[in-house]
């Protein structure tokens, strides 16, 4: 996980089973429901949350792997043409709205960048939080740019763009059941959109916890994990887009 965590602070690694030097005093079991102030175990919780996310992403990958193999198999299937009695295919090449999809892709990639800025900003804030709490220390009010809000807006724009792409597909005569090719376009884009919407909800949750004055370290975990999830969704979209273009 070291690669994934360019944090300003170093947390002592206390819990690696069997290898750590410090007896673990916390067996865990807080899952963000720990609002006790000054808790020293945010580092552990962050690592655990990232690990959980990585494992969860394996499951997401398997879902899309299954869809991909279904697509490859279905594309290769011949059907019997009733008129000529020869083998034919019912796979109609989909006329994808390329310009719109490229715009959507750009929006999603930019949102990934803003997400990363948001992640780094909150990492910095979380690192400075203990210093700020020392009486008499003032670091000045850091007025940070609302990267999270921008990411949410870009994410929603991407989803709206995908919805427009569906409208365009329908206008070009490709509905869900028109051809297996168009069925897969809808299934894959909808599957991705649902997952991305989950990311938007997580960001909104992080925003709500900011209003609820939860400790910043706790919010940082939500933002950090969502950021990695968000980057994964950007990668996943590029994969899906490439797949739809190649296996049209």
């Amino acid at each position: 996980m070291g690669i994934l965590s360019p944090t300003l602070t170093r947390y002592p690694s206390t819990l690696r089973g069997g290898e750590g030097n410090v007896p673990p005093v916390n067996g865990g079991g807080d899952d963000g429901h720990n609002s006790g102030g000054g808790s020293p175990n945010y580092g552990e919780r962050l690592r655990r949350a990232r690990l959980g996310l990585a494992i969860g992403l394996i499951a997401v990958t398997m879902m899309f792997v299954a869809c991909t193999s279904a697509l490859i198999m279905r594309k290769g299937l011949p059907i019997l043409d009733p008129e000529t009695s020869r083998s034919a295919t019912d796979w109609l090449p989909v006329n994808l709205p390329m310009t719109l999809l490229l715009v959507n892709t750009t929006i999603l990639l930019i949102s990934s960048v803003t997400m990363e800025f948001a992640r780094r900003a909150i990492t910095r804030q979380a690192a400075l939080a203990p210093v700020k709490s020392i009486p008499g220390i003032s670091l000045g009010d850091e007025k940070s740019f609302p990267w999270l809000g921008l990411t949410v807006a870009l994410g929603l724009s991407f989803l709206f763009g995908q919805w427009m792409a569906w409208q365009e597909l329908a206008a070009r005569g490709f509905f869900v059941a028109t051809s297996p090719s168009s069925s897969f376009v809808y299934v894959l884009t909808a599957g991705h959109a649902l997952h991305l919407f989950g990311g938007v909800l997580a960001l909104l949750y992080a925003g709500v916890t900011a209003l609820a004055r939860r400790p910043i370290e706790s919010r940082r975990i939500v933002v950090d994990v969502t950021a990695w999830y968000w980057h994964f969704m950007a990668l996943l979209w590029i994969y899906i887009f490439a797949l739809l273009v190649v296996a049209r």
């Binding site: 089973g17 069997g18 067996g27 552990e44």
Partner: peptide, 14 residues
């Protein structure tokens, strides 16, 4: 999986 990888107590090697 996360529990097994992350929450083993000290000395509980795999």
């Amino acid at each position: 999986i996360t529990t097994i990888l992350d929450l083993r107590c000290k000395g509980m090697k795999l």
